[in-house]
Amino acid sequence: MAGGLRPQKARTPVEFFLQQLVNGVTLGGVYALVALGYTMVYGIIQLINFAHGEIYASGGYMGVILISWLFAHGFPPMVCLGAALILAMGYCALLAMALEKVAYKPLRQSSRLSVLLSALGMSIFLQNGLMLTQGVYDRAYPTEMVQGGFHVHGVIVSYMQCIIVGLTVLLLVLLNLLVYRTRIGKAMRATAQDKTMSALVGINSSRIISVTFAIGAGLAAAAGIMVGLYYGSVRYDMGFVPGIKAFSAAVLGGIGNITGAMLGGLLIGVIEVFAAGYISSEYKDVFAFIILIAVLYFMPTGIMGENVDDTRI
């Protein structure tokens, strides 16, 4: 994956293990970012936002468009990356807010099944919209932008992986500050805990829901760009399977729990890479689903405990 880097000699089992760990943490960071969107939305309106995977894919596409354009006009790589990241995150945040207004808000009083179906419909709609206009083939990222890496005790760490992990950590820290240190974060936590009571103390729940969608979508867009850079391409249906895996991560961490989603994402990423490395790479997608089912069966509240106002039946 990392352009041009090959191991210099045969790897020892320890090196192989460490290499898998590095790759797993990179992937896990991406899953964590997507999982946060699921967990925050579920925490507030108890909806599995199926369209979240498509927002992530849109982020990836927006990234490839912006980065290619900026790179072709001779901007330095870091400027391209930064500008594309900020613009794509902003764009996806707006898109998710509009999506919420169109497909979920009118259904606030309807049954859960209706909202779920509406979410599914929007997911199919967006995915096929992307296919129709951007084509069915992979779109390549200009990966020549960030190349190279370094060896640490026989483990290859590419600069791209460093950027991904660094960026993930930065975003997670920012999110934590937002949720636990600001007024809007306090309002979000209050709405997640008890919608009626928080409305009684003057919190505009409809605005909070919008903000939650926007934040989740921004994180997903960042994840989409990073995955595009990591694998070198994006595809219209790239959001489907990672979406399920990220949701598994959110459930594994305890749905509605922000720290849980981060931890769950990391775990799912590491487990997937190890399963692919040690067991079978054909079946790597199966492991995330098996974890999801096992967690729901044996530990339905996840490892960190769930945080959901389950007053709406």
């Binding site: 009118p106 259904l107 419909g121 929007m122 199919i124 096929n128």
Partner: peptide
């Protein structure tokens, strides 16, 4: 356009 339309219709039907 088949699935594209179905997806949109599904969401709109629910509303």
């Amino acid at each position: 356009y088949r699935m594209f339309v179905f997806g949109g219709v599904m969401a709109m039907m629910m509303v």
